[in-house]
Design a protein around this nucleic acid. Structure first.
Lengths: 377, 377
DNA sequence: GTGGTCACTGAATCTTTAC
DNA sequence: GGTAAAGATTCAGTGACCA
């Protein structure tokens, strides 16, 4: 294992496998093949886009656009690009945990090929996410629409993997309490965040903004998770992972990018547990069994419950089930039963009498949780 | 040709081929195969998204694909969808004019496969456009991001086809005078625009908003162009085409959709010629040789020209070239020369003295064009 | 410090016509 | 077909420098 020095500041510096929080040098497929099966929680991949640029492009002021013409972005054909994509996706799939997810970013030049190959290999697309750029480069010749976005695909390892991490509440809380949409707005990476070389030019042609990676990790990983980036480049994934209390594994071929990324990551200060808790949003609320409400006396065995319009009623039994005539079952089952539905949230369907009106039993659950907090549970 | 009755209100009702402004009933590949080569200007296609093959899909040989519950595994399903996509894209490519363009809309379920196949068949992607929905359906389970957009691919027939229509200036003017971006914001189709069946339910599951089609046609077609929609459905393409002075050809298999679309299109009132006039830029104006300004006396041989800041000057020669010291050449060449650039627009770079100030020689070109108009040239 | 000007820059599949 | 010439074209920033 050609693990490089591990940057400072990781709590597990002395523990964990030797490839954790390091940058592996070399080809991404070969490097991934040296990692164990099912060893990473999420993968962020920013593969070559295969831009297929022709000649030079000049701005109206005659200055030349600094194009991405690096050798690593050159492919002979779509077939060659597809073969490359298939190879690294296969390697990535093996190292991904069964409930892990993968993110791939691209533009219209490559993203359709990547998406099709993801599906071919059995990955299951969860969302396509549009990164809308606040400040994209214009279309200088006025021959197309301004290319103002890039596309990310978020996919689970396979269709049956339902246990992937999605911090729904955290995303909602971060989005003014409405669901986070599939279109995200961020500036491109400029200013001081953009790494520069000795001459003051951009170090890497396609450095991604940290805000983008932060949202990805906050949405789809937990503190302590391992994030793999097979096209590590300037190390944005590693920097954000360290700040957010995740572990990273980077793979990169070029030594100058590795050096810059290590230095960058070492300078990152991890957030404290308290700050991370805030970012993670609402903690998962403790589950409350309806029966425990009976046990603790919040509601008494024998009490009557109604739906909001008093069309149906049920009696609370000592074991925490409801009975209606001869039938009995959980609050959910019985709510579904009377309505003729397959499913029902009994907490919001059933109500109890209080001060002459009806109150959802969810209120009792809330009270029960307050009691659990006080108890330090 | 199984052309149906042509809706009223088309100026060419008595002329044009018999398939113009009609809906062809049947399979889209078979129907397109009955149209002539290179006969349509743009194609808008909203193919089935459904990868479960529930009866909507046919193989290229017209045999029906078995429904979902059968032994078709995922890979076979994707293969069948790819074959279907390839078949209709090939047929579409033949009927598209050399400088025509195609729009395909889809979601993450199918758009990656469609995009890859477009590239495989030689189409050249110009943009991918994101339709951001103002009012998307929420994600009810809270297990993914709200799927708040759909993706459109805009492609020319092949890489070398540079003569496609793109009304850049009109799009820019419609967007607060900055160039139109690749992310568009529109509501989904609801309210009175949404066609209803006898029971008041939505007639078609995926009726697209007219605003979306309007932007597509205003951006990439001219009045009088022919717009083909091989998955016509409720006829949004036809309705918008008629309103915007374009011709349509629709293909649809289900008679109830055809009936509804015909009725809908007949009710549309076309806009007048004046309202349809498209803002054009300098590209559309007649060319003027600088020498002709000298010939007509708008500027005199021997006159001096300066750049806007009077850093450089040049002398007009009788043949319409400029001289600076020993060097001479066109207004463009000399403008580039003094600045050390490869290229320069001499019309806006060089200025002449008027009323004590400097005016671009482009003003003289404008005057010359006015004279050409009066002369009826 | 403040404000104004100017130079520079970003994953880019970026022209049209005449000869 | 190719080559050469004409001529059309940019948005949201950041940062340096100067008054």
């Amino acid at each position: 294992m050609s693990a490089l020095r591990r940057p400072d500041g990781f709590s597990n510096a002395a523990s964990g496998p030797n490839w954790l929080n390091t940058i592996l040098k070399g080809d991404c497929v070969a490097a991934m093949n040296r990692l164990p099966d099912a060893s990473v929680d999420i993968i962020f991949a920013d593969p070559p886009y295969n831009l297929q640029l022709n000649g030079d492009l000049h701005r109206p002021d005659q200055s030349k656009v600094d194009a991405v013409d690096d050798a690593w972005d050159q492919f002979d054909s779509f077939e060659a690009y597809d073969a490359f994509t298939r190879a690294w996706l296969l390697a990535a799939r093996r190292v991904l945990k069964p409930n892990g997810t993968i993110w791939v970013i691209g533009s219209y030049h490559n993203i359709f090929r990547v998406g099709a190959k993801l599906q071919d290999l059995g990955f299951w697309i969860l969302n396509d996410i549009v990164w809308r750029k606040t400040n994209p480069m214009p279309n200088f010749r006025g021959r197309r629409f301004q290319n103002a976005h890039e596309t990310m695909i978020w996919a689970s390892r396979d269709e049956k993997a339902k246990g992937y991490t999605f911090n729904y509440e955290a995303m909602k809380a971060a989005n003014e309490d409405v669901q986070m949409r599939s279109d995200w707005l961020f500036p491109i990476c400029t200013g001081h965040e953009r790494l520069k070389d000795d001459k003051g030019d951009k170090l890497h042609p396609t450095q991604k903004p940290e805000a983008l990676l932060a949202r990805i990790m906050l949405a789809s990983s937990k503190p302590g998770d391992v994030v793999l980036d097979p096209f590590f480049g300037s190390g944005t994934t590693g920097a954000v992972a360290k700040r957010l209390g995740r572990h990273f594994v980077g793979i990169e071929r070029e030594q100058n990018y590795i050096d810059a990324a290590l230095e960058r990551i070492e300078a990152v200060k991890p957030l404290g547990t308290a700050e991370l808790t805030v970012l993670t949003g609402k903690r998962a609320l403790p589950r409350v069994a309806f029966g425990s409400l009976v046990d603790t006396g919040l509601i008494k065995a024998g009490a009557m419950l109604w739906d909001a319009k008093r069309r149906w009623s049920a009696r609370v039994r000592a074991d925490g089930t409801l009975s209606i005539g001869d039938e009995a079952g959980s609050i959910h089952k019985m709510g579904a039963h009377v309505q003729g539905f397959d499913a029902c949230n009994g907490w919001t369907f059933w109500h109890y009498e209080r001060a002459g009106g009806l109150t959802p039993i969810d209120e009792l659950r809330r009270i029960a949780r307050l009691g659990m907090e006080k108890a330090g549970a």
